[in-house]
Nucleic acid binder design. Structure first.
Lengths: 338, 338
DNA sequence: ATGAAAGCGCTAACAA
DNA sequence: TTGTTAGCGCTTTCAT
């Protein structure tokens, strides 16, 4: 591949001038600009950003860590981040932690190896074991979705407790009294807050709230939920705390032959297009993912730009999309779902 | 951050020795190894892979281009690629083309800027406009999922025509005669092959096959499908050629009040967990994504390793998971779905 | 087995 | 305004 020297030689200028033309840093005479540009075009020259970063000490790559890029929740988050990054001239190095804290730390170390300008991390638990590594490297980091226990970093998340309280209110208002919450993993603060929110409104209204931890994997969640529904008392409402749990719930409910919403109401945290397309359409808590991505990106850009203000802690509002899966059981036989 | 010189100074050795210890290239005396290692630990030294690549001319980053990382199909593909990459000590620079050929080319150019060891691309159409760029750069490229018209590169895809023929056979065998195919975009060879496959088996059996192009976006697909189902003759089978189309179909069918499978059978290309969890479970063509990722990665590693054999063209077999959404209409009133 | 020195491609001082 | 030179952090000769 041609280097900046090849271009300089062909254009009959110095490498500094080529650099200045390409980066528009210093003003260059119009005829030299033209000569450089045609040399670039003729050679198909593409600058080496690695070398550029090395010398200029300005990095244009940002590392992103998510628990699982195959999960559409994180896929959508990453897509929105990429959009923001592209606008600002950054590229994204994306890694998955597989919901494993040890792997998360290892992946963070790998990312630091590329000298990113910053990091955006959706931690796999509240501990965020790799935090020390990042702090030692002095690389700005913004946490998204999940909140590390001691947020010494900027954090962008949602108002879990408030929206879960609304779910509790909704379930009670539609006549449900025995609420089962399927939480993936209570080591995640989000999930504890969501449970607390439901309790806030459901218990004072006389409903019972039971919580089971079903794990982060689909197969395991389905199995635990099936077991619980087979052997325990049957609830009249089920609230799943993430999209994997919602799929697990649908499978488990079909397996034990419980009808939604006749036998029990189903509400899921995390929204997806298919959830409103199926019958019955599923009631969901919609998280503002694009907004979360933009906010996280904005904070990171601010930090990269030298902002040293105390950590920002942003909580975005969710929206409860109440659909047929949590309609009152008694009215349902007659109602149309669409 | 400490550099290799900081480590060398602390360990009392030369930078060459530090490099040799860290990369295990030349043999180093045990005591020096120990001193280097403790210096590394003490300083929290993390090597700069950009500088390393610059000097050694060995890149450990691979660029990945997908139409949309938020689409679980590509999310899963990328997750599988990341897994393979990590095992081989590579990192992934992932970009989305947004199903836009111009953006695809721009993103490819951006990737080349990082001097990747190779590229894995799921093109957004058969033209793959950026191919010239990649060839000029001399960077090995493997295409996955979609096949460029003139495959001068290694390609890993699925046997679309064969599995679509099986879908046609299945629909005919279960009593369907008026098949509607909802193709996203016929500029994608995959979709043309899938249509041809259905025709291969359905038309000789006396069924009619109609094809409509619904576009790659959900809202548009839903609208076009609704319009077609409202104003055209009602088919008794619908085959959607990707996961977005399947969601669009569910919405459209609910909107026009057609019941699956009583009024028509529904079969979707692309599988997802939720498709087997909903009622009725959806019949789907399952693509071997993990296998596709492993094969693409394997080809890329071979090319990076110097393999100059003629382009490989791999077609993997899909599996039709026939579920209740394409059960024979007449038997259905009595059948259990699960 | 180890170190000194050169140089990967680029940009930032500094000189002219 | 332009060119010359040094050097970012690393690896690789080449010498010892």
């Amino acid at each position: 591949m041609p280097s900046i020297r090849t271009v300089a030689a062909l254009a009959g200028v110095s490498t500094a001038t080529v650099s200045n033309v390409l980066n528009a840093r210093r003003s260059v005479a119009p005829d030299l600009v033209a000569r450089v540009q045609s040399a670039v075009a003729e050679l198909g020259y593409i600058a080496d950003l690695g070398a550029s970063r090395l010398r200029s000490r300005r990095s244009t790559v940002v590392g992103v860590v998510v628990p699982d890029i195959a999960n559409p929740f994180f896929g959508t988050l990453v897509a929105a981040l990429e959009d923001a990054a592209r606008r600002d001239g950054y590229d994204l190095l994306v890694v998955s932690s597989g919901e494993d804290p040890a792997l998360e730390t290892a992946r963070l170390r790998t990312l630091l190896t590329w000298r990113p300008a910053g990091l955006i991390v959706a931690p796999c638990d509240d501990r965020l074991a790799g935090r020390a590594l990042v702090q030692a490297a002095g690389v700005p980091m913004v946490c998204a979705d999940r909140v590390p226990a001691d947020p010494a970093f900027d954090v962008v998340t949602v108002d879990n407790r408030t929206i879960a309280a609304e779910v509790g209110r909704h379930l009670v208002a539609t006549g449900r009294r025995r609420i089962l919450i399927a939480a993936a993993n209570l080591a995640i603060g989000n999930n504890r807050d969501r449970c607390a929110g439901v309790r806030d409104t459901a218990e004072p209204a006389g409903a019972t709230v039971e919580i089971i931890e079903v794990g982060v994997r689909l197969a395991e969640s389905r199995a635990r939920l099936t077991r619980r529904l087979t052997f325990g008392p049957v609830p009249d409402a089920l609230f799943t705390l993430n999209n994997v749990g919602t799929v697990a719930a649908l499978s488990a409910l079909a397996e034990v032959r419980l009808a939604v919403p006749e036998d029990l109401a189903l509400v899921g945290f995390d929204d997806a297009e298919w959830m409103r397309a199926v019958s019955p359409p599923l009631s969901t808590v919609h998280q503002p993912l694009e907004q979360m991505a933009r906010a996280a990106w904005g904070r990171l850009m601010a930090r990269i730009g030298g902002d040293t203000s105390p950590p920002h802690h942003l909580r975005l509002a969710c929206r409860l999309d109440s659909r047929a899966s949590s309609a009152p059981a008694r009215r349902l036989a007659l109602a149309h779902w669409h």
